[in-house]
Design a protein around this nucleic acid. Structure first.
Length: 271
DNA sequence: GTCCAGGCATGCA
DNA sequence: TGCATGCATGGA
């Protein structure tokens, strides 16, 4: 990976296995919009970003080095996904899937945003998840200009009532969000601490949260807490699991979540 | 109009 | 422990 600062932009070359369409629009993050020029715009970590690919290089537009240090981690740029993919291709289904959809990465999202987003995601489709999260950010996030808003903090959301969440279209999840926001804001749920726990303990801690079951916990662990072994099983992955009657193959060990994201994408397009 | 979506809490056996 | 049920809402 080679990083070059060019005027206001940062150019990164030598990153293999990163397809922006597949990674930013595959149901792991809900705040990226494709622009007419093929670039993506979105917000994470309090930063607005427009990113595009140009001759195989990644262009982080109007990005300084401080912001880039956030994005470098967010896009998991230092992990060797090419090597990971070649390992996963020992499995026959993944071999053809990775050939078809090469370039999916796991984004290192912030734990609060990921947890909150996946509570909203339950029994919901991706389009509507984006709709609700968009409303939430517009109503309670910080205005970054041009129609972009930060994801509101737990502290900010802890002031809301159940009916405030209902007004955003959260439906029956409103009561979960109301309590989750208060629990995180007051420290009863300590997301930073959960990040440091072993996987099983971290999962147990998340499962104690009202409105968080095994699926939401695993999504949060994978997308927001850095646990690449978490393996979320939703309605799509339940269909995929019929292809693995004897359990997950050995080549998934330690990177089950990355395998899962490829299989999830395959299922949504082929089942 | 019906069906479904990155499920969960609850009650009951 | 496992299974049935109700739950909000918008798009297809």
């Amino acid at each position: 990976m080679k990083v070059t600062v060019e005027k206001n932009n940062i150019r990164v070359s030598g990153v293999d296995c990163l397809d922006l369409d597949l990674t930013l629009d595959c149901g792991q993050a809900f705040r990226w919009e494709k622009q007419n020029d093929g670039s993506y715009s979105g917000v994470a970590g309090g930063y607005f970003l427009n990113i595009k690919k140009e001759n195989g290089d990644l262009i982080f537009k109007n990005t300084d080095e401080k912001a880039f240090s956030f994005w470098k981690n967010y896009f998991d740029l230092e992990k060797d996904y090419a090597e990971i993919c070649s390992r996963l291709k020992e499995d026959a289904l993944l071999s053809s899937t990775i050939d078809a959809y090469y370039g999916i990465r796991i984004l290192n999202q912030e734990s609060w945003e990921a947890l909150c987003s996946f509570v909203i995601s339950q029994q919901n489709n991706i389009k509507r998840i984006k709709l609700i999260i968009g409303r939430l950010c517009r109503a309670y996030g910080d205005d970054l200009g041009n129609g972009y808003y930060t994801f509101p903090s737990a502290e900010r959301l802890s002031a809301l009532s159940v009916s405030d969440f209902e007004k955003l279209g959260c439906g029956y999840r409103a009561k979960y969000l109301e309590r989750l926001s208060k629990d995180v804001a007051c420290g009863a749920v300590d997301l930073d601490k959960i990040k440091t726990l072993p996987l099983e303990e971290a999962r147990r801690a998340l499962l104690e949260i009202y409105g968080v079951g095994i699926k939401v916990a695993n999504c949060a662990l994978l997308f927001g807490f850095g646990f690449y072994s978490a393996f979320p099983v939703d309605v799509w992955m339940k269909r995929v699991m019929e292809y693995y009657p004897d359990g997950l193959p050995e080549c998934f060990d330690g990177i089950e979540g990355i395998a899962q994201q490829y299989l999830f994408h395959w299922a949504r397009n082929n089942l």
